[in-house]
Protein backbone atom coordinates (compact mmCIF):
# COMPACT_ATOMS: atom_id res chain seq x y z
CA UNK A 1 0.00 0.00 0.00
CA UNK A 2 1.35 3.45 -0.82
CA UNK A 3 1.67 6.11 1.85
CA UNK A 4 -1.60 7.71 2.98
CA UNK A 5 -2.42 11.00 4.57
CA UNK A 6 -5.56 11.68 6.60
CA UNK A 7 -6.24 15.22 7.74
CA UNK A 8 -8.80 16.24 10.36
CA UNK A 9 -10.28 19.71 10.17
CA UNK A 10 -10.26 20.14 13.91
CA UNK A 11 -12.54 23.20 14.04
CA UNK A 12 -15.40 21.24 12.42
CA UNK A 13 -15.24 18.18 14.70
CA UNK A 14 -18.10 17.76 17.22
CA UNK A 15 -16.42 14.95 19.11
CA UNK A 16 -19.04 12.37 18.18
CA UNK A 17 -16.42 9.57 17.99
CA UNK A 18 -18.09 7.71 15.10
CA UNK A 19 -14.77 7.69 13.23
CA UNK A 20 -12.91 6.09 16.15
CA UNK A 21 -15.22 3.07 16.03
CA UNK A 22 -14.68 2.28 12.37
CA UNK A 23 -10.91 2.77 11.97
CA UNK A 24 -9.49 -0.71 11.21
CA UNK A 25 -6.14 0.33 12.64
CA UNK A 26 -7.70 1.96 15.73
CA UNK A 27 -5.38 4.95 15.38
CA UNK A 28 -8.00 7.69 15.91
CA UNK A 29 -8.17 9.10 19.43
CA UNK A 30 -10.05 12.02 20.97
CA UNK A 31 -7.64 14.83 21.81
CA UNK A 32 -7.28 16.10 25.36
CA UNK A 33 -7.59 19.73 24.29
CA UNK A 34 -10.90 21.18 23.10
CA UNK A 35 -11.55 22.90 19.82
CA UNK A 36 -13.18 26.25 19.09
CA UNK A 37 -16.64 24.71 19.62
CA UNK A 38 -15.62 23.20 22.93
CA UNK A 39 -15.44 19.58 21.72
CA UNK A 40 -12.54 17.19 22.10
CA UNK A 41 -11.66 16.71 18.43
CA UNK A 42 -10.65 13.42 16.88
CA UNK A 43 -6.98 13.17 15.96
CA UNK A 44 -4.74 10.56 14.37
CA UNK A 45 -1.64 9.79 16.42
CA UNK A 46 0.60 7.72 14.19
CA UNK A 47 -0.13 8.74 10.67
CA UNK A 48 2.17 6.08 9.26
CA UNK A 49 -0.25 3.32 10.27
CA UNK A 50 -2.99 4.91 8.23
CA UNK A 51 -3.74 2.97 5.02
CA UNK A 52 -6.01 5.64 3.56
CA UNK A 53 -9.03 3.32 3.61
CA UNK A 54 -11.24 6.38 4.35
CA UNK A 55 -13.74 4.47 6.52
CA UNK A 56 -13.39 7.27 9.06
CA UNK A 57 -14.22 9.88 6.44
CA UNK A 58 -17.14 7.78 5.24
CA UNK A 59 -18.56 7.65 8.76
CA UNK A 60 -17.97 11.32 9.65
CA UNK A 61 -21.21 13.34 9.65
CA UNK A 62 -19.41 16.68 9.42
CA UNK A 63 -16.89 16.43 6.57
CA UNK A 64 -14.03 16.79 9.07
CA UNK A 65 -11.79 14.20 7.41
CA UNK A 66 -9.92 14.41 4.11
CA UNK A 67 -7.99 11.40 2.87
CA UNK A 68 -5.22 11.24 0.32
CA UNK A 69 -3.24 8.25 -0.92
CA UNK A 70 0.00 7.95 -2.81
CA UNK A 71 -0.56 6.57 -6.30
CA UNK A 72 0.77 3.01 -6.39
CA UNK A 73 3.73 3.04 -8.78
CA UNK A 74 2.83 0.83 -11.73
CA UNK A 75 5.46 -1.71 -12.87
Amino acid sequence: MGKALVTFREDRCKGCKLCTAVCPKQIIKMADHINVMGFHPAVVENQDKCTGCALCALMCPDLVIEVAREEKKVG
Binding site: M59, C60, P61, D62, L63, A68, E70
Partner: peptide
Protein backbone atom coordinates in the same frame (compact mmCIF):
# COMPACT_ATOMS: atom_id res chain seq x y z
CA UNK B 1 -0.75 12.13 -3.16
CA UNK B 2 -4.16 11.79 -4.75
CA UNK B 3 -7.22 12.88 -2.80
CA UNK B 4 -9.51 9.93 -2.32
CA UNK B 5 -12.01 11.58 -0.05
CA UNK B 6 -13.01 15.23 -0.02
CA UNK B 7 -16.04 17.46 0.22
CA UNK B 8 -18.32 17.07 -2.84
CA UNK B 9 -18.68 20.20 -4.97
CA UNK B 10 -22.49 20.16 -4.59
CA UNK B 11 -22.08 20.64 -0.84
CA UNK B 12 -21.27 24.13 0.37
CA UNK B 13 -18.22 24.34 2.62
CA UNK B 14 -20.00 25.48 5.76
CA UNK B 15 -20.44 23.65 9.06
CA UNK B 16 -23.63 21.66 9.67
CA UNK B 17 -25.81 22.77 12.56
CA UNK B 18 -26.71 19.16 13.33
CA UNK B 19 -26.07 17.64 16.75
CA UNK B 20 -22.85 15.69 17.22
CA UNK B 21 -23.21 12.25 15.65
CA UNK B 22 -26.46 13.02 13.86
CA UNK B 23 -26.33 11.12 10.59
CA UNK B 24 -28.21 13.77 8.58
CA UNK B 25 -24.75 15.06 7.73
CA UNK B 26 -23.78 11.74 6.18
CA UNK B 27 -26.93 11.59 4.05
CA UNK B 28 -26.44 15.18 2.89
CA UNK B 29 -22.95 14.23 1.76
CA UNK B 30 -24.15 11.13 -0.06
Amino acid sequence: MKKVFTRPESLKDIPFHYCPGCTHGIVHRL
